[in-house]
Design a protein around this nucleic acid. Structure first.
Lengths: 230, 230
DNA sequence: CGCGATTTGTGCACCTCTTCACAAGCGCCT
DNA sequence: AGGCGCTTGTGAAGAGGTGCACAAATCGCG
């Protein structure tokens, strides 16, 4: 019986990365891994990693490290990945098509159980073995497939309506790719991924770096050779 | 002389969202907007918004609000969006195809200037008016199109090699969709978007909510809407 | 011209997350 | 068995971000 650990949000956001790194390490045949090794594989500080793992209990052995298989099991348990979760994807435009075919979902235990769209001309199309159904069928689909997560890949103007429909059928977790804010009732989690925003953040840093080289002691920033240690 | 503003990273990550909200407000015809109004449109707290904007100078008028057009101009300037930036997209598989066709990039001032892939069978294919070229042509393409940002949409095993190639031709900003950590020299910025990780984070919250409802006296879920960030 | 309504900009306290540094624990070797 | 080297787990300090609450500033109007 696992007591509610009250995990820090920042830790939760890193656990999937640890999980990925652990799977990679497991494939190399290692049975244990040190915090230093895992931290490198996950691209974080080793102290941070240890603190993160300590939040979900002590599953390491001092002097030895962490048991890879055991740790994978623990993290998957905490993330609720022991059961396969069914995802409904709404909006099969450009991005929706790609998401429907993205095999990274299935390999992490997520099953795209339904494709939905509001455009009648898209209904009936088959993508990756799934037939696109009309979004109005959501209530039936949600029950049939026991949907637990909704993904919105519609244009921005349609996103709020879709979110409302998802909430109405009991979905409490939404991943939103539409460039807009969704308002949802308390208790519903929304995560947003906006591809253009990522580019704009990069643009800022690019801009800043350009300003720097133009300003004082024009040092560094144009070197492309120095390598970072493993 | 424009002193380097030294913007907090969290602020930078929100500026694109403000920008999007401002464009939406501008289209409604409003010429000014209060911090409260803009904060609502962007999905943040109004105090946070004011503090963010104060970091890039005082462009508001007390008692009135912010001039929408002026603020758009300022934020775009800070983000370095006044010049159109050229993007090279490497990997035109499932996800790459979608990104190549995603119109959200062009509308925010980014131009996908080149599509590259290592698979000879994909070279020559035309997507959205662009012909896919072999990744080995990167050096020439980078110069011809003055690439400033690289996007990696390859499978994980190929990502590091592509990153090295991008860095070698002088790219200092990379957006990585491959589920792996990239090691790059200092001075190169990498942002990572992992679609499966977002789902896993949602899975955790879903799992937690399910545990809570199964337990006594349902505690009030203090849910906040999280956006992705770093 | 002054007053009140409105809204910005910011000092401050709180909180979360990060990082360091080190004691405690574990296995191995002699 | 005992010591030694390695690694975890954690207390404490520091850095950064958030939100409140309020003074300062501006506009419109009588």
């Amino acid at each position: 019986m696992p007591a509610l650990p009250e995990l820090p949000e920042a830790t939760v956001a890193r656990l999937p990365e640890y999980l990925r790194a652990l799977h990679a390490i497991a494939e190399t045949g290692h049975e244990t891994v040190s915090s230093e090794g895992l931290a490198n594989a996950a691209g974080v500080n080793s102290a941070k990693l240890r603190k993160d793992l300590s939040h979900l209990g002590s599953y390491g052995t001092r002097g030895v490290g962490y048991d890879v298989a055991l740790l994978i099991e623990q993290i998957e348990s905490v993330l609720g990945l022991t059961q396969c979760r069914s995802v409904a994807l709404v909006g099969v435009g450009n991005l929706g098509h790609a998401l429907a075919g993205y095999d990274g979902f299935a390999s992490r235990g997520f099953r795209i159980a339904a494709l939905l769209d509001a455009d009648p001309s898209r209904v009936g199309e088959e993508i990756n073995g799934l037939v696109v159904r009309h979004v109005d069928e959501l209530p039936r689909v949600a029950v049939e497939e026991s949907i637990s997560i909704g993904v919105i890949a519609t244009p921005a103007p349609a996103a709020q309506a879709v979110a409302d429909q998802l909430v109405a059928v009991g979905v409490t977790s939404i991943l939103n790719f539409a460039p807009c804010v969704l308002s949802v009732p308390e208790g519903v989690d929304v995560r947003k991924v906006d591809l253009a925003i990522e580019l704009q953040i990069l643009s800022f840093h690019e801009h800043r770096k350009a300003s720097l080289t133009a300003l004082p002691g024009g040092l560094a920033a144009t070197d492309t050779q120095e390598a970072i240690g493993t």
